[in-house]
Simulated assay, not measured.
Amino acid sequence: MRTDKIARGRAPWRYWISAPFVFTALLGLITLACALFLPRYVLAWDLGTAKPPDDYAAAVNGIRTALLQGVGGLVLLIGAYLTWRQLQLSRHGQATESFAAAITHLGDPNLDVRLGGIYALERISRSSSADRRSISEILSSFVGNRTRDPQRGAGHARQAGTPPGSEVNLSLRAPDIHAALTVLGRRAPIRGQVLLLDRLVLPKANLASVRLRDADLHFSDLTEASLIGADLTRADLTGVRLAETNLIDAVLYQADLRDAVLTGVIAEGVDLRGTDLTRADLRNANLRGARMDYADLREATLAGADLTGASLKRVVFDEKTEWPEGFDASRIKPTRRRNLPPISPRTYDEFAVPKVAAKNGQPSDSA
C-alpha cells in the first residue's frame, strides 16, 4: 500500500470531534429541549388548580423567551470568563518570556545588558509575587559568584588592608554588582527567606537604607562601606569586617556580630539592642547615642570608643571586656538571665570550607 495515498486521504471522523465540541453540542441540545418543553410544565406548576389563561400560547412563549434570555446571559458570562482566562494565560506567558530573557541578560558580557537584566528582574518581582523568592535567590547568586571568596574564614576579619583594585567605590568599579545589591536591598521582605551573601568582598560599597533582615553575611568584608539607615535586623554578621564603616542610624537589632571587626566605625544612633558582640573589636568606634541595651559584650574590646549618650542598660560583660579609659562599668545594672536575648550557640565548624583532596579531586570532610 502506498503511503502517499494515506497522507493525502481524509482524516478520520474522530479527529474532528473533541471534548469541547461534544460538550457544546450537548449543551445546545439540552437548551433547545428546555426551551421547547419546559415552559409548559413551568406554566402548569405555576397555575396549579387555577384556570389556564385565555392566551395560553402567549404565556408559554413568554416563559420560553425568559428562559432563552437567561441562557443568553449565562453564555455571555462564560464568554467573559474565558476571555479573562485567556488574558491571564497570555500575561503569564509574557512574564515567563521576560523572566527567561532577563536571566539570559545576566550572563551577557556587555555591562549595559547585565544592568538591564537586573532591573528587568526587579520589575518582574514587583508585578509577580510568585517569582519574588526565586528572583531574590538569583540576584544573591549573581552577587556571590562575582564577589565571594570561598576561602575566607574567621581570621580574615582581623587582617588589615583591602584587596588590590578595591580603592574605588563599588558603584564605579562594579556597577552591575552594586545594582543587584540595591535591588535586593529595597525588595519587599519575604517570610522565611534568608539571603545567602556570605564571604563577600565588598569594600567601599554604598548600601545606605538597604533592607537585609535575616541576611547571612558571615565572614564578609564591608570595609569603609556606607550602611547609613540600613536594616540588618537579626542578620548573621559573624566574623564580618566593618572597619571604618558608616553605620549611622542603622538597625542591627539582635544581629550576630561575634568576632566582628568594627574598629573606627561611625555608628551614632545605631540600634545594637540584643546583639551578640562577643569578642568584637570596637576600638575607636564612634558610638554616641547608640542603643546597646541587653547586648553581649563579653571579651569585647572598646578601647578608645566614644560612648557619650549611649544606652547600656543591662548589657552582658565580663572581666575580659575592655572598656574605654575612664569608663565606670559598675554603673551598669546586671542583667537577669531571663532577660538575655535568645542567641543560638554556634561554632566555626559549620562555616568551614570543605577541603579538596590533591590526588583524586574528591572533596574530603569539612575542616
Rank of each mutant, 00 (worst) to 15 (best):
I248M: 07
T233Y: 03
E350R: 08
R40W: 00
S134M: 11
S364E: 15
K313C: 00
V22G: 07
G192P: 14
A358V: 07
R298E: 07
P164D: 02
P164F: 01
R114D: 04
L170R: 11
I6H: 02
Y294M: 12
P20V: 06
G9S: 07
L76Y: 08
L89G: 06
L207D: 06
A19P: 10
V42R: 00
S220K: 11
A59L: 00
L195G: 06
L115D: 02
P341N: 00
D293H: 11
R258M: 08
R158D: 13
R40L: 02
R148M: 10
Y56M: 00
V315S: 12
T83N: 09
V201L: 04
R133H: 07
S366C: 12
L287S: 03
R148F: 01
W45T: 15
V75H: 10
I30P: 00
Q69F: 13
A250R: 00
V168F: 01
Q254H: 13
A160P: 03
R199C: 09
T278D: 06
R148K: 10
A7Q: 11
I190A: 05
R2L: 12
R126T: 12
L340R: 13
A367S: 10
S220M: 03
P189L: 04
L115Y: 05
P203W: 07
D108W: 07
P12I: 13
S125E: 12
V270C: 03
L277E: 02
A101S: 15
L36I: 13
L207V: 09
F351Y: 06
A7Y: 10
R314E: 14
D256T: 07
R133I: 04
T275M: 04
P324M: 10
S220N: 09
D365Q: 14
M1V: 14
T104D: 15
S220A: 10
G161R: 09
P189I: 04
D293S: 15
G79N: 05
